[in-house]
Design a protein around this nucleic acid. Structure first.
Length: 455
DNA sequence: CTGGTGTAGGGAAAAGCCCGGG
DNA sequence: CCCCGGGCTTTTCCCTACACCA
């Protein structure tokens, strides 16, 4: 072996050792990043992994560009939002939070515009997003090949199974720089779409790990919308909240603090949105309207409640019987059926009621108030439904028909009672002689036999 | 024929429960 | 979150017509 060859061999060995060392360090770094990203993914427990790996492995430069775009777009979106929405109006909190997160890409801009429209036009942002999304394109499949998408538990089906060929890289690069395709390319379903529009997608960068943390915390705050996580608890009543600001406002329930007052009537409120909504009672303004029926409302909350009339959504369900309600207050009232609670009592006779209006109607039995009068005979009734039934005596309407004999009745109670003549049911028994009757009034008449009472 | 008794329906009072909206 | 007003349903009750029988 010549000295030249020996030198070459020596150099080769050193180079190999150096390369191995570099590779080892690189691999260690990769593993650390992998672990960190996996940790983030587990923490979030959603489908972030595909996007994270995609950018980290294949687009070390891409994130820089995208991050700048994100900032620019964020400003753009903020300007857009500020110019189009009531800046101080916190309503609707949910949607607004979504808006902030949607303002992250050029695609996001479009979504924001839609969402802002729907703040008035009723349709939830995500619903609209879903509608705007097409089926995954072939590009999506292409991208997925090299990006571990198939590993994601959220990516169902076998369409991402193959490992990508070397030639895919350039196409992918082009695709990802093509802003208008960003999230439809990456998305498979609506949940993917939502997450692909978050700023965190771009911020999980390979070479700016510190920044990733910052974005992740912001991402975490947002993701509580999806996870339902509410880490901020009230020390007084134990209620949980997603954000510190929500807890702050809630605490005023306990402190009684109402820092917002109406300049017109002096009424005070614990939060600014309450005051703003109240101010509309003075101005008559009803800026929120239902696009289904056209009804207008003063606040987003009112519109949101109303929307359930059309959607049939019943978000409040009883844990005991499972019955669901459109309002939380309806569930509260319903729970009194199970608890037997009757917080409303009559000052005159002491009778108690489970709901306030029940007491109010009851009071009419003491006052004699009968606000509903028959236009035909002038007879008055304390509640409208009793007048409605009464009107059948004039119209001869008998909507309740016996399926056995065909006889009809103007009240359900009449039919129910009549049915006992077919079933021979006699639930009312004389305690003196044991004779049974199918009507309680017949038993009452019968008792005269024993008491000697004359009618 | 009359009065006692039983049967069945008419109608109303009031409470229960639920719902939409302010 | 609370409250109000209202709708529909259900229960309970009083009253009455009618049949049957001694």
């Amino acid at each position: 072996m010549s000295s030249v060859e020996s030198l070459r061999e020596f150099v080769n060995e050193r180079l190999t050792a150096a390369a191995e060392e570099i590779f080892r360090v690189f691999k260690t770094t990769i593993v650390q990043y992998e672990e960190e990203i996996d940790r983030q993914r587990v923490m979030l427990d959603i489908c972030w992994k595909p996007q994270v790996k995609l950018h980290r492995i294949e687009l070390p430069q891409q994130h820089v560009c995208k991050e700048e775009e994100v900032l620019a777009d964020q400003q753009l979106c903020n300007q857009e939002r500020n110019s189009s929405l009531d800046q101080e109006d916190p309503e609707p909190p949910e949607i607004k939070e979504e808006q902030e997160e949607l303002c992250t890409s050029r695609e996001g801009e479009q979504l924001v515009l839609k969402v802002e429209t729907d703040t008035v036009m009723l349709t939830p942002a995500y619903e609209e997003s879903d509608h705007s999304e097409a089926e995954p394109t072939s590009d999506h499949q292409l991208l997925s090949n090299n990006s571990h998408v198939a590993e994601s538990p959220d990516q169902k089906g076998g369409e991402h199974g193959d490992s990508g060929s070397a030639g895919d890289g350039e196409q992918k690069e082009k695709k990802r720089h093509h802003g208008s395709k960003s999230h439809s390319d990456y998305a498979k379903n609506s949940s993917d779409i939502q997450h692909n529009t978050h700023p965190g997608e771009k911020s999980f960068s390979f070479d700016k790990f510190g920044k990733s943390f910052k974005c992740t915390s912001q991402l975490n705050a947002h993701m509580r919308v999806h996870t339902g996580e509410k880490p901020y608890s009230c020390n007084t009543c134990g209620k949980d909240f997603r954000k510190p600001s929500e807890l702050t406002i809630h605490m005023r329930v306990h402190t009684g603090e109402k820092p917002y007052s109406c300049n017109t009537c002096g009424k005070t409120f614990s939060d600014s949105s309450g005051l703003r909504s109240h101010m509309r009672t003075h101005t008559g303004e009803k800026p929120y309207f239902c696009k289904t029926c056209g009804k207008t409302f003063r606040s987003w909350g009112d519109l949101e409640k109303h929307t359930r009339v059309h959607t049939g959504e019943r978000p409040y369900s009883c844990k005991i019987c499972g019955k669901a309600f459109t309002h939380d207050s309806h569930l509260t009232a319903h729970m009194r059926i199970h608890t037997g609670e009757k917080p409303y009592s009559c000052n005159t006779c002491g009778k108690t009621f489970s709901d306030s209006f029940g007491l109010k109607v009851h009071m009419r039995t003491h006052t004699g108030e009968k606000p509903y009068s028959c236009q035909t005979c002038g007879k008055a009734f304390n509640i409208k439904s009793n007048l409605t039934v009464h009107m059948r005596t004039h119209t001869d309407e008998k909507p309740f028909t016996c399926q056995i004999c065909g006889r009809s009745f103007n009240q359900t109670s009449g039919l129910t009672r009549h049915m006992r003549t077919h079933t021979d049911e006699k639930p009312f028994t004389c305690k003196t002689c044991g004779k049974a009757f199918n009507q309680t009034s017949n038993l009452t008449v019968h008792m005269r036999v024993h008491t000697g009472e004359k009618p």
